[in-house]
Amino acid sequence: MNHKRSQILTALLLAGGFWATAHAGDAKEIAASVCAACHGEDGNSVAPTFPKLAGQNAVYLQKQLKDFLSGKRKNEAMEPFLGSFSDGDTSALGVHFAREKTAPGTVEDATLVEAGRKLFQDGNTDSGIPACAGCHQVDGMGNDRYPRLAGQHQTYTLAQMQNFKSGARNNDKGKIMRSVAERLTEAEMKAVSEYLAGMEVK
């Protein structure tokens, strides 16, 4: 009985292993056939309205994909592709893009970078804006809970802050990002987006 049980277990483990490998393969294929058109073949989008996914934290990416599938996060451009992957693919897709290397961003207005750096690292004590570095980390690399921002297109970063501010994007943990964005001025959002675009990518 024990022997039989262990045989079943082994079979299950093997099947599980194949399943995971198959899914990693699926993720690569989905990335190439579905995601690449907008997000780039290696997850580095060219058009700045689409986010770079390369080097993003896997757990964070997985949550965003799940949120798109469940409707917690909405985006017109993403909508037509939501039928091309399922909840079971989100983990492998997250890992796939997390492994890619982020291409460095380009600063468009260098005069804004210093103001952006100050806000990101130090916040604004007058209006009660916390330093972004508190959650997104001093090097802008984020963690499982908060996205990596270093090297992201300024157009995309800015749009997300505007969406959090208006409430159009509302899948943030504990309304934290909406509370921060509510206090950000347009000038502050632009400055911090420039700083992040120029931040060193690792």
Binding site: G123, P130, G134
Partner: peptide, 10 residues
């Protein structure tokens, strides 16, 4: 505490 340290500092 991550959400607090933006203000209360590391």
């Amino acid at each position: 505490f991550e959400i607090c340290q933006g203000c209360h500092r590391k």
